[in-house]
């Protein structure tokens, strides 16, 4: 009996030792040298793999950080400054403090429902609908309402408003990763600075058509009249291709442009009292055209 146990132990021991030696050499032969720093950086990242940084995922971002040795041009939007600081510590480099940002939908939610000119009956995808025609509103620049941005969001921070058919961003959940902005085939969504107390002013329209044409599809379209640019004390507003754009790095949120805009295309959010009464329909479109 003892002998049998002994033989078994010996045989197994020899086999074990043999394979241990084989495995040792195999491991040496196929060793992949990887910087342990990559693991540490990856550990710090949110791990949502949202792709907002432009890399394939969080691990790829960590690899890029370590390879580069600093954070120039690399930013994890969901992690924000806190994560940037931690990575900078690990890499031993400095990091610039970035202004917190948020996704902003630049298409007016009001007045779209009653302006519907057609009924889209195809694949529920903005990217596809964009190749078929202008969309239900008739505005070739407006929101198509199929929710590609909602599908793209990894943080559940953007939802379709069933009343208006346009997406609404949840500011608390939005990490400004930019996935929605990339998913939107019409580039309606933009990342803008959150602003002090979350107060922001922006042009809620991306229509580049001439004023009269733009007004036909939407009463709140930017007609490029330039009134806003004239009143802006900071020269933050530029007009190109019949469209006004407010540079958020220059804007001080004085709201002069909001009251000036004849079509109410300029929107202010999170201010205590509205600068203008929410009267979505402009009085006379012709006045707006004349201003042009």
């Amino acid at each position: 009996m003892t002998q049998q146990i002994l033989i078994a132990v010996l045989v197994l021991g020899v086999i074990g030792a043999f394979f241990a030696v084989v495995l040792y050499f195999v491991a040496q032969k196929f060793k992949v040298v990887e910087d342990p720093l990559i693991d540490e950086v990856a550990e710090v990242l949110p791990g949502a793999n949202c792709g907002g940084c432009g890399k394939a995922g969080c691990r790829a971002f960590a690899e890029a950080c370590v390879a580069q040795g600093n954070l120039d041009g690399l930013r994890c939007a969901p992690g924000g400054d806190a994560v940037a600081q931690k990575i900078a510590q690990l890499l031993g480099c400095a990091v610039e403090q970035g202004e917190p940002q948020v996704a902003v939908v630049r298409c007016h939610p009001a007045n779209c429902g009653d302006k519907r000119r057609s009924n889209y009956d195809g694949l529920k995808s903005c990217a596809f609908q964009n190749t078929v025609y202008t969309g239900e509103s008739g505005c070739p620049f407006g929101c198509l309402g199929c929710g590609d941005c909602v599908d793209a969001c990894q943080f559940d921070a953007i939802h379709m408003d069933p009343a208006t058919g346009t997406p609404v961003v949840d500011e608390d959940l939005c990490t400004a990763c930019g996935a929605c902005a990339k998913a939107c085939p019409r580039r309606i969504i933009e990342l803008r600075n959150k602003g002090k107390k979350n107060r922001r002013v922006f042009v809620s329209c991306v229509n580049r058509e001439k004023g009269a044409v733009a007004m036909k599809s939407c009463a709140n379209a930017c007609i490029g009249c330039g009134k806003c640019a004239k009143v802006c004390p900071m020269e933050a507003i530029t007009i190109s291709d019949n469209l006004s754009y407010i540079d958020f790095t220059k804007c001080i949120a004085c709201r002069k442009c909001v009251t000036e805009c004849p079509t109410h295309a300029i929107v202010d959010v999170n201010f205590p009292s509205p600068a203008v009464k929410p009267a979505p329909k402009p009085e006379t479109p012709t006045a707006a055209e004349a201003a042009k």
């Binding site: 195809g122 694949l123 995808s125 990217a127 596809f128 190749t131």
Partner: peptide
């Protein structure tokens, strides 16, 4: 299923 639409989208992608 809107298969033809999906394939067109896929071709574009």
């Amino acid at each position: 299923k809107p298969l033809t639409d999906e394939i067109r989208l896929g071709k574009n992608r």
